[in-house]
């Protein structure tokens, strides 16, 4: 594992917001290397900058200073069009609030990234079915998100994140809206996906106990800074 080039490398990354006179350093000089295939948990109290850091890795945001290097490419040097392509092809995202589109069926929700990536129509149905099978929801393919439980909705979101076969899966508090049993089931699913088909996972959470059980390594943030990046076990 350590012989492979790192999936993500953060070099003195800062992201600050200027609000009038004051400057808020949401992420303050963070350097971190995440090897390919690792399941990293990002811990920290609310407002410590975890989501901001994750969005920088996702290419949804740009650092004020420093470099974010993903799969060998410096995101801060990419055009916004190239960043969009990076998000379609290299990254899958899962959110605390699921963010499924309510008027679309599961099939249509999972198909969305394939539409954006201009995948052939003939190929889409199979890939959507495969992704939903992977999360155990193939029987609910024609349902709408509102007809599903929270755990099922999050599993659909995971299927949507997987369907484009990304190298990196980014999850922002994926269990935050779920009861502990359901949350555990989601983390078990992520862990399986990490092994097969094989993926680098960065998961933001504030549940240390779950993080210790499922992640390879814990990084802890506080007030925009990286407090520790030690291994979990």
């Amino acid at each position: 594992m350590t012989e492979l080039p790192p999936a993500i490398r953060l070099e003195s990354v800062s992201r600050q917001y200027t609000m009038g006179e004051s400057v808020i350093r949401a992420v303050n000089d963070v350097s971190l290397t995440i090897p390919s295939g690792e399941f990293l948990a990002l811990l920290g109290s609310s407002g410590s900058g975890k989501s901001t850091l994750l969005n920088l890795i996702a290419g949804l945001d740009r650092p004020s200073t420093g470099a974010v290097i993903a799969q060998g490419n410096d995101l801060s040097k990419m055009s916004s069009l190239a960043l969009a392509r990076y998000r379609r092809q290299t990254v899958g995202m899962v959110f605390q609030s699921f963010n499924l589109l309510p008027r679309m069926t599961l099939e249509e929700n999972v198909e969305l990234p394939l539409r954006l990536a201009e995948v052939d129509r003939s190929e889409r149905a199979t890939r959507v079915r495969e992704a939903l099978q992977r999360v155990g929801l193939e029987k609910r393919i024609g349902h709408r998100p509102s007809e599903l439980s929270g755990g099922e909705q999050q599993r659909t979101a995971v299927a949507r994140a997987l369907v484009n076969r990304p190298k990196i899966l980014l999850a922002d508090e994926p269990t935050g809206n779920l009861d502990s049993a359901t949350g555990e089931a989601i983390l078990t699913l992520l862990r399986e996906i990490q092994k097969n088909p094989g993926m680098t996972i960065v998961m933001v959470t504030h549940e240390r106990i779950l993080a210790e059980r499922f992640a390879d390594r814990l990084a802890v943030m506080g007030d925009g800074k990286l407090l520790s990046n030690g291994a979990a076990r």
Binding site: A58, L60, S80, L81, A84, R85, R87, R88, Q89, V91, M93, F95, N99, L101, L112, P113, L116, A117, R160, N164
Partner: peptide, 16 residues
């Protein structure tokens, strides 16, 4: 707003 955000997170370019 949120839907546009989701589309962008899933890889939609500004142009899309």
């Amino acid at each position: 707003r949120r839907e546009i955000g989701v589309l962008k997170a899933l890889g939609a370019a500004d142009r899309d």
